[in-house]
């Protein structure tokens, strides 16, 4: 029975199915083959040899990184950077969206939006370049320091500054663009709710707290879940561009470490084991966050 319906579907919609062939090939080759390629985390892999490795070695590479102090060091760095991003970068677009929502002059609102979206469209390489220009010894920030009589600081060479630099550049790049979904959600809030709140004598603050914030909560929760899922892969490209051996103590994260171990030093299986660990944790975090939010606030990704 089932086979016949498939046959009927194929006969009727073969043209539609034919359109799927190439896109599906893309997903199989460039998305699912690499997933399967993770078996090299359990097998010895010889560069240039079999794509899926040579011999089984079980959990050898997992035990290796479990006992690798550098791994735990970069793991901690990743957690700190991820937590700072969630704590400091994530809420910022909400605040800016609420502020923009208070602007009554149309063109002014548009102007601020247009300007604040701009950094989002730049290549991460350009962003890194701008950061380096600003923080160079002859850069604008050090010029400011000298103007108030302080000594110039080689910011990008000091581990103590890396997190601040990372977080603030992240804010600069994402805060404006991040407001889009919140602003869209804000327009869907029913004006009658504000009306009712005003009649009940609610102040502007109380209206924000009791009407606006609940109105954008589904958006907040969805974005939070997605952010939690990328917790461990924080800012790989940006860190790779901005760090250097001097700032490794605070800047080196799991993804940059496995890049160096795998691609630069050629320990592919070892790096794949770390990468698999990272991906599985990421997936677990999304699923857990999604489950928790479904149970508590009723918002869910699917």
């Amino acid at each position: 029975m089932k086979r016949r319906t498939w046959r009927a579907a194929l006969r009727r919609d073969w043209q539609l199915y034919s359109l799927v062939v190439l896109p599906l090939l893309f997903f199989v080759v460039f998305r699912y083959l690499p997933m399967a390629g993770n078996v090299i985390a359990f097998r010895r892999y010889r560069p240039g040899g079999d794509l899926f490795g040579e011999t089984w070695v079980g959990l050898r590479y997992f035990r290796m990184f479990w006992q690798d102090p550098t791994f735990w060091h970069v793991f901690t760095n990743t957690l700190v950077l991820g937590a700072l991003t969630l704590l400091l970068v994530f809420p910022l677009p909400i605040v800016l969206a609420l502020l923009l929502n208070e602007v009554r002059t149309r063109w002014l609102k548009r102007l601020v939006q247009t300007i604040s979206y701009l950094p989002h469209f730049l290549s991460i390489v350009v962003v890194a370049g701008i950061v380096m220009q600003l923080l160079a010894l002859d850069g604008a920030v050090n010029a400011g320091l000298r103007a108030v009589g302080a000594d110039a600081v080689p910011f990008l060479q000091q581990p103590g500054w890396f997190r601040a630099i990372y977080i603030s550049s992240e804010m600069w790049q994402t805060v404006g663009w991040g407001t889009i979904l919140y602003l869209a959600a804000l327009t869907t809030i029913d004006d009658e709710l504000y009306e009712a709140a005003r009649i009940d004598g609610a102040s502007r603050w109380r209206q924000t707290w009791h009407v606006t914030l609940p109105g954008i909560r589904p958006t907040m929760v969805t974005l939070l879940i997605l952010n939690i899922g990328t917790f461990l892969s924080v800012g790989f490209e940006k860190v790779l561009l901005l760090y250097n051996p001097l700032t490794f103590p605070t800047a080196d994260v799991i993804s940059t470490y496995l890049y160096r171990v795998g691609v630069v030093s050629g320990s592919f299986s070892y790096a794949a084991a770390i990468g698999l660990f990272e991906s599985v944790i990421g997936l677990t975090l999304v699923l857990t966050a999604n489950f928790v939010s479904k149970r508590t606030v009723g918002a869910s990704l699917w």
Binding site: V20, L24, F27, V29, F30, R31, Y32, L33, P34, M35, A36, G37, N38, I40, Y45, L51, G229, S255, L258, Y259, G262, V263, F268, A271, A272, G275, L276, E278, S279, G282, L283, V286
Partner: peptide, 21 residues
């Protein structure tokens, strides 16, 4: 088919297997 596509948003092969491939 939708599932095949959407799943890759939440789980990917990772840097090393991609590089090897």
């Amino acid at each position: 088919l939708v599932g095949i596509a959407v799943f890759t948003m939440f789980f990917n092969g990772g840097l090393i297997p991609n590089y090897v491939l």
